[in-house]
Structures are given as structure tokens and as C-alpha cells.
Design a protein around this nucleic acid. Sequence first.
DNA 1: TGAAAGAATATGAATTATCATGTTTTCACC
DNA 2: GGTGAAAACATGATAATTCATATTCTTTCA
Lengths: 177, 177
Amino acid sequence: MTVTKRASDLVAVPAKPAEQGFVRTYLHYLLAAASDAVLTEFHALVRARGVRVPEWRILACLADEEGQMVTQLAALALMEQSRLTKIIDQMAEKDLVTRRSDQRDRRRVRVYLTKKGRKLAAELIAEARAHEAGIIEQISPDQAEILKGVLARIIDLHGPEARAGDRPSAPTIDEER
Amino acid sequence: MTVTKRASDLVAVPAKPAEQGFVRTYLHYLLAAASDAVLTEFHALVRARGVRVPEWRILACLADEEGQMVTQLAALALMEQSRLTKIIDQMAEKDLVTRRSDQRDRRRVRVYLTKKGRKLAAELIAEARAHEAGIIEQISPDQAEILKGVLARIIDLHGPEARAGDRPSAPTIDEER
DNA sequence: TGAAAGAATATGAATTATCATGTTTTCACC
DNA sequence: GGTGAAAACATGATAATTCATATTCTTTCA
């Protein structure tokens, strides 16, 4: 069972005592706020390069693995499929990516980086790593390792794959490759 | 966990073999993805109650402390001031909050919960705590405690207050009593 | 004391995101 | 082998968000 060793509170109308408040100790909030803090900082660098945030995300995802299909990529990049379709449009316009339809299943559209896209991705990933390194040092590499582990666990348990596999009629993620 | 192997394999571009990829080990991504995972789940409950996500956030923030000014509240809720103004409009429409202008400084607008808003906030906070409890149990309460600590540290170092205080002429947040 | 600078909030046009649905292609199965 | 169901993307109308700026009030200090 859960042992909240803090002051257990009932639904108090005014929040006043020596308490820290719900929000600031709520896991979901802490995750959102930490994410926001760190991203806000880095996104400033991305924009300074003339790149939009959603574009950066796709560049990073594709740098990891090119030729992903739109649906896959959307899940990885934490965005909706229809939005990704539009972002890919823009990126194709700017010659950062190209689409190619899958020959074995012509419903599928696979996305690749262009030369230009690949170069930009590499540069931004370098910046990202540098930014990350600064933070990891601040919070100590050991703690960072633990942090990453727990986060990965949460993603495993509650992320898109978990949610999909959860459902009654297991729809079998037919993973490519 | 069924592994139905369909023969639909297709070779994309040579992807890295035994590597884990940049994205999936990148701190910023892990934070965003964990946050997204957990929030997506909870937000479904919020919407099931007929409440919009941004409204829930404001309810929670105000339940912690009523009478916050718009700017303050926006920073806490991780949203832009102009957006918050509009959300408050809607919430006022629904009789969840009321505005009252500060008598000492009439530029300031302080936001309060209505009776209805307070009740709704309390109910949702209860649900939030329950959802949080489930996750904490999964990842073990000890790890959760550590996690929260590290997240709080990151927020401290990189959050809005840090960014504001960072600037040359530290503008000292003048807190109203 | 009053003019300029700065704070706090509001507003509206322009951009983005979301939702439901359309189109094309493949799958399952009788 | 033909048919209905489902998958993968695209599209377009609607709704939400952002960005720049307007408005109102306060503070500073010459």
C-alpha cells in the first residue's frame, strides 16, 4: 500500500499551513515542469538555428532510423499522425526529407532524410547532446542514470506501446524488421 | 503479448544494428515521453468528466492557492499569459472561477475559485492522487521519491524562476503576502 | 509634479493543431 | 476470387495557440 509519510490532508478549502501544495509535489506536474524547463531552454537554441521545434523532433527521430513509416514516426515523436503528415509536407518543401511509398505495402509511406536534412540533424543532435551533458553534470551523472532508468520504465508502462498492447483484443503490433 | 510474425518485412535504409538510438536515451526525450505517457492517461479521465485539460490545470493551481495573479498563475501552470487570460474567460463563463482586481495595484487581476470550481477541483485532485499512486506503486515508492527529488532539482535549475533570476538585472519576484 | 519607463492584463490577426472523415490499399475468410 | 473489415495516410473544417501590440495602471526621478 502507499504510505504517504507526508501530512495526509483531507479536502481543505484554503491551502495555507506549512504545506508545499498539491501541484508542486504531484508527479505528473513535476514531469511536465521538468520537461518544459529543459525543453524551453533547448528549443531556444533550435529556433536560433531557424528550425521549428516539431521539425527538430522529426529530424532527430529520422537520424536514429530512416525510412520509418508515418504512423511509427508519429508515435515516436509523440505527435498525431495528421499533424505529422503536415509537418512532413513542410519539411519536404524545405528539402529536409523525402517520402517514398513502400513497395510491398503501398499504403505505407516511408520518410527519409535528404542530404541537407541529415547534416542539419547531425548538427542539432550535437547541440542537444551538449545541452544534455550540462544538465547531467549539474544533477550528477549517477542520479541522471537513475533518472533515465525510471523514466524509461514509466514510458514502458504507460507509453503508446503499453496503451496499444493493453487493449482486450491484443492487436499485435506487427513490427517491421 | 502475442508475437504474430507477418512476413511483411521490408528493408529500409541500413539502420544501426545493435544500437539503442539517440532519441531513446536522450534526457529531454525521456522527460517529454514520460510526461506525455502519464498525462495522456490522466487527461482521458479529466475529459471524461467534461473538463478540458487547461482548465484542470488552473483548477489544480488555484486549489493550492487562490487569489494568484494572472502572470503568476500562468508561470505555475506552464502556459503563456495571453492564453491563460482566455482560459480564465471560459472558466468564468462556466462559473468555475471569478476575477477580482487587486485593490493595492489595480493592474493586477486575482483569480479565485467559485464554490463550484472548488468542488470540481477537489474531486479531480482526488482522482489525480489516485492515478499518481498507481504509478508510484509500479515504480516503487522509493524510486518515486528519488525521481521527484531529481525532477524538482531540474525545475529549480532550469524552470521559469531560474530563467528569470538568471538575467543580468535580477528582478526579484516581489511576492504579495 | 509630471513625463517616461515599466508592469500587468487584454485583444485580435495569423498561425497551428485537432477531429472527423475521405481515399487507397491490403487482409481475412468464406 | 470476391467482399467486408481494417490499416495507412491525406485532407479540410473547426478550434486552440501564439505573437505582436494595445490599454490601463504604477513607479521612478528629474
